[in-house]
Simulated assay, not measured.
Amino acid sequence: MSKVRKVIWTNTAKDQLRTIYNYYKEKSLQGAINVKNDILSSTKNIHFIEQYQKDEIEPEYRRIIVRDYKILYIEENEIVYIARIFSTKRDSVKQI
Rank of each mutant, 00 (worst) to 15 (best):
22 N>Y: 15
42 S>F: 02
69 Y>Q: 07
83 A>V: 11
85 I>F: 04
74 I>D: 05
9 W>H: 06
70 K>T: 01
49 I>F: 13
44 K>S: 00
20 I>E: 07
58 E>G: 02
81 Y>I: 08
78 E>L: 13
58 E>I: 10
35 V>A: 07
89 K>C: 03
77 N>L: 14
41 S>P: 00
90 R>N: 11
73 Y>S: 07
87 S>Y: 01
85 I>P: 05
46 I>F: 03
59 P>T: 06
19 T>S: 15
44 K>E: 01
41 S>H: 01
55 D>E: 11
31 G>T: 13
9 W>M: 10
10 T>A: 03
7 V>S: 05
94 K>Q: 01
22 N>W: 14
83 A>C: 09
26 E>V: 03
93 V>G: 02
59 P>W: 05
59 P>F: 04
60 E>D: 14
13 A>G: 06
15 D>H: 10
12 T>M: 13
12 T>Y: 06
70 K>E: 01
81 Y>F: 15
54 K>F: 14
93 V>E: 14
35 V>K: 08
21 Y>C: 10
69 Y>M: 06
96 I>P: 05
25 K>D: 12
85 I>D: 05
39 I>E: 04
48 F>S: 12
13 A>V: 13
8 I>P: 09
17 L>A: 09
89 K>E: 15
51 Q>D: 08
87 S>A: 08
49 I>D: 12
34 N>Q: 14
26 E>G: 12
63 R>V: 04
47 H>S: 12
64 I>K: 00
80 V>S: 03
7 V>I: 14
75 E>F: 05
1 M>Q: 03
30 Q>F: 15
85 I>Y: 02
3 K>P: 05
53 Q>M: 10
36 K>R: 12
3 K>Q: 06
41 S>L: 02
31 G>M: 14
5 R>T: 15
28 S>D: 10
96 I>G: 05
40 L>K: 02
71 I>Y: 01
73 Y>R: 07
26 E>A: 11
72 L>R: 03
76 E>I: 07
37 N>K: 11
17 L>S: 09
88 T>F: 00
47 H>K: 11
58 E>T: 09
60 E>S: 09
90 R>D: 14
63 R>L: 07
57 I>T: 11
81 Y>N: 05
51 Q>R: 06
9 W>K: 07
49 I>K: 10
60 E>A: 08
66 V>M: 04
27 K>I: 14
65 I>K: 00
2 S>F: 08
34 N>I: 07
9 W>D: 09
44 K>M: 01
34 N>C: 06
62 R>V: 04
1 M>E: 10
87 S>T: 08
74 I>M: 04
91 D>Q: 02
37 N>T: 12
